[in-house]
Design a protein around this nucleic acid. Sequence first.
DNA 1: ATATTCTACAACCAAATGGTTGTAGATCAG
DNA 2: CTGATCTACAACCATTTGGTTGTAGAATAT
Lengths: 105, 105
Amino acid sequence: MSEAELDRLFQAFADGTRRDIMRRVAVGEYSVSGLAGLYAMSFAAVQKHVAVLERASLVTKEKRGRQQIVRGNHEGLQGARRLLDEYEAIWRQRAGRIADMLAED
Amino acid sequence: MSEAELDRLFQAFADGTRRDIMRRVAVGEYSVSGLAGLYAMSFAAVQKHVAVLERASLVTKEKRGRQQIVRGNHEGLQGARRLLDEYEAIWRQRAGRIADMLAED
DNA sequence: ATATTCTACAACCAAATGGTTGTAGATCAG
DNA sequence: CTGATCTACAACCATTTGGTTGTAGAATAT
């Protein structure tokens, strides 16, 4: 996963409206206007948020009739989780080394 | 964990230089200028990146003589992991429901 | 005492973000 | 066919971001 992709991924999570959209589409299907109805902002603003999530591969859109259905994309989410797990692993290695040093006395 | 804290957390991860700093300080200790020496940008730019990580509770600073030691803060990292784990759980619940529906035929 | 090192912070700049309104193309309903 | 609905996209605006340079203070070294 490239640095640019990670930039987009975490940038996408760095907004409360987008995190809420992620929760919604993880549970069910929403059209763009269905989502727009949930927030106190313009349709275009929500449309932009969905676009940010789409560029981050956290969401996919599929045309159904005149509406565009937004679905959560599990793989994108897993990419972010993997990175944080990697940091966690590095951290634990270090904690392990410190424990070893203490044990060596 | 408040929405504003989550904003700062994920915003902090949304930059390659800051992600690299996180990897470094997860392994060892660095002063601000020690970190600054690693990147092709000004001291002040790196200082700002460290400040962003600090506001996000991903890093702490401790004064030692004339230098400021930057350390990774495990709890901040775990906050981000928890959120992604929560989305993952929601996703799996949904996958479970779909499996149940299919099984009900 | 003086010079050097490390840090902090202000001021500035270009680009990106998060919002708005307005316009226009598809699709569906009556 | 006509009107309503859903979407896309452009243009605009204020604020934030990621970078710069410059100045100044505190701690250390010579």
